[in-house]
Amino acid sequence: MIEALPTLVPVGEYIAVGDALGCAPVLFHALSKVESLEDPRAIRREDHWWRKMRFASREAKAFDRKPNPKNMDDRWTILREMDAVCQADAPLNLRARNAAILCHSLCWSQIMGFNHRSCGFDDPRNWLDAVQTLQGQRECLIAFVTDNPVLQTAFQRRDYPAIAHHYNGPNYRANKYDEKLRTTVRKLETAGVTYA
């Protein structure tokens, strides 16, 4: 189902998210550029989370040093391969069942799988299914931000350090996430992108 997504997120998605959260749509457009280059099919494995969550089988360990390929189709293939290993390992360690999903960030907003509950899903597999459509991605991001009132207020106030802290994590300064977001917003506003 992921193949049916467009190459770039339509501007209407940013408008819908902004309207739902009482925020400027340009913020979510900038977030999308910073997180995924506006790719709704974006996927990234976070290896440090994978090593913490996976079962220590030989098959699971084989993915420890496997790089994130540039091609998103290849990344989705690796996720499916990892998930198959996790399913096989689940009888030995039930916690490993969803490890492949939990250690990936998905779609244009790059929300981590371990945040599935903040997106409104008890089961990470249902969250994975949801983010394979634009509507599901939009609804998950809205739920994720709504679940954290401090983050929602930060978006509403354009408080870039607070957005960075609550969206990207407490180490956001290391990669200048707040500055990247602010700069991208300025560029979009200067370019005159229409959000109507």
Rank of each mutant, 00 (worst) to 15 (best):
I142V: 15
K70T: 05
S105T: 10
T183I: 03
L102A: 07
W76I: 04
K52P: 02
V145S: 02
D39A: 09
P69C: 03
D122I: 00
A88Q: 13
A100R: 03
R95S: 08
E189Q: 15
C103F: 06
N71Y: 02
R158N: 09
R51V: 11
Y160N: 13
D129H: 13
R95Y: 03
D129I: 01
R95F: 05
L37C: 00
R117T: 12
Q137C: 11
A143F: 04
D89R: 11
S109D: 00
K61P: 00
K61L: 05
D122S: 11
A30V: 03
L92F: 10
W49G: 00
E189A: 09
D159M: 09
P10N: 14
A90Y: 04
D39L: 10
P6S: 00
T133C: 03
Y160V: 11
G136N: 07
R138W: 08
L31H: 07
T77H: 10
A154K: 06
V145L: 04
N115M: 05
Y172T: 08
Q152Y: 04
R182N: 11
M112C: 10
L102T: 04
D39I: 07
E139L: 12
P69Q: 09
D47I: 11
S109L: 05
R125P: 00
V11G: 00
K70D: 14
N171Y: 14
W49H: 08
N98M: 04
S57M: 06
F55H: 15
R158Y: 08
R80D: 15
R173W: 11
K61Q: 11
E81T: 01
L141F: 14
R54E: 10
P67G: 07
Y167G: 04
D159C: 01
T146A: 10
G113E: 12
G136Q: 07
V34E: 11
H48S: 08
A130M: 07
